[in-house]
Write a protein that binds this DNA or RNA. Structure first.
Lengths: 155, 155
DNA sequence: TGCATATTATTAGTATACTAATTAATTAGA
DNA sequence: TCTAATTAATTAGTATACTAATAATATGCA
């Protein structure tokens, strides 16, 4: 019975909650965080590193741009930048064209620290994705993007 | 050249960071949280609801068991339970067999509230997973589990 | 041109996540 | 039986996420 089959599929579909997604992300972040902690030279958190990663890629960005690219809200960006400034890893300077805006960039020390951490990240990813083919990871990416797009329509 | 092909695949694999995973989870949680906020009767956060969900499924659990099943750490469980007790949604009672342990269960009100929220969750999931087949979601689940298992070996 | 509206960053408050430490209770082993 | 080791929950501290509000600045429109 086609209707019965469809009903079963819908119920099966709804069993798959965000729980698996969330706990996997949590474990990834937790593991990566612990790996960072093992290096004495490393004094940045996972999220601080994410910000540094984006800055290294783009050279200089406003806090707003940073927030968009890292998918973090403004107050959180402000706080992360505050901490990175304290650690001497980024510089916050005013934008000549807009006095409300700050431009953020990595210091020399920030770039060096980023470069030190990068291979650690690669190592971590190799472990996380061990035994998973590129095709499978691309499919994962694809499905996640579908979910993201679905929910972006809501916001 | 076989070596060259292998090298390209490895590089491609390492571009896929946890970023897509994390931002999707964040958007899911954020969207769900906003949907909950739209209902006046609902005064629980996403994470509080997750705890209630597990309690409804298992009737009564220790805090430790709750933490394991929700993948949350002990201090966080303590705080969430504190808030749920304040809201009159769960009861915390001592375990007769072990005086260090508390047993947690939903109140009548807690069960009612859970029942009220459940269809909201289903609705949310339907939106998040729109246009995604059951097979694709199962593959998603499968890949996530592989990552989880990979990293569980580290901890 | 002037003012209403929008924007950028910050502050404050609440909730959650993680580490470290502590206390009281339980377990394991000599 | 006694004690060292382990366990369950809590407290404290730091970091991040989200909402709401605010002040200063920029933009849009009459």
């Amino acid at each position: 019975m086609p209707g019965s089959s469809s009903q079963v599929s819908i119920e099966k579909k709804h069993e798959i909650s965000g729980f698996t997604l969330e706990k996997t992300v949590k474990l990834m972040k937790l593991t990566f965080s612990r790996i960072l902690l093992m290096h004495q030279y490393v004094d940045v958190t996972v999220d601080q590193w994410v910000v540094m990663h984006i800055l290294c890629k783009h050279q200089q960005l406003s806090q707003q741009e940073l927030g968009e690219l890292t998918f973090k809200d403004a107050p959180t960006i402000t706080r992360i930048i505050d901490l990175l400034v304290q650690k001497g890893l980024v510089i916050r300077s005013t934008d000549e064209k807009d006095r409300r805006r700050f431009m953020i960039k990595l210091t020399i020390e920030g770039i060096e620290k980023y470069r030190f951490i990068e291979p650690i990240v690669q190592e971590f990813r190799a472990e996380a994705y061990a035994g998973i083919s590129v095709d499978e990871l691309l499919m994962l990416q694809n499905t996640l993007n579908k979910i993201f797009v679905n929910l972006s329509k809501q916001n």
